[in-house]
Amino acid sequence: MVRLPLTPDEIERGQRLGSLLRTARGERPMLMVALEARVSPETLRKIESGRVATPAFPTVAAIAQVLGLSLDEVWAQINGATGAEDPRAGASSLVAG
């Protein structure tokens, strides 16, 4: 399967997601959060750094749950600057990875 290049909006949204998760993690060790969310520390590191701009939805949901973030809150934070009103409009960007 050929993966299309990410759009500038997708890259920016991935950077906002990474920043949100990093801020929410605070002083908690990355390893502990990753283990609780059942994702690899490398995956969490890549998401937080914006290198994985479109992580899979279950991955985002698991990390958000561990960090005490609602998915509505995550959606609002990462899409606030793009003006997306309908959550379904950008849902594919969270499940593409």
Score class of each variant (00 low, 15 high):
5 P>S: 08
6 L>M: 10
6 L>W: 06
7 T>W: 07
8 P>K: 09
9 D>P: 06
11 I>H: 11
11 I>W: 09
11 I>G: 05
11 I>N: 07
13 R>N: 08
15 Q>W: 07
16 R>W: 00
18 G>F: 00
19 S>V: 08
23 T>E: 11
25 R>K: 05
25 R>A: 02
29 P>E: 12
30 M>I: 13
30 M>N: 14
31 L>T: 15
32 M>I: 14
33 V>A: 06
33 V>K: 00
34 A>Y: 03
34 A>L: 07
35 L>F: 14
37 A>V: 13
37 A>M: 12
37 A>I: 08
39 V>P: 02
40 S>C: 09
41 P>S: 05
42 E>R: 15
42 E>D: 15
44 L>H: 04
45 R>H: 15
46 K>E: 05
47 I>H: 00
49 S>G: 07
50 G>H: 00
52 V>L: 14
53 A>L: 02
53 A>K: 01
54 T>W: 01
54 T>S: 11
55 P>C: 02
59 T>F: 01
59 T>S: 04
61 A>V: 14
63 I>D: 01
66 V>W: 00
66 V>D: 03
68 G>C: 11
69 L>F: 01
70 S>Y: 12
73 E>T: 10
74 V>F: 05
76 A>D: 15
76 A>V: 12
80 G>S: 11
83 G>D: 08
87 P>A: 05
91 A>N: 04
91 A>T: 06
92 S>F: 03
92 S>L: 08
92 S>Y: 04
97 G>K: 04
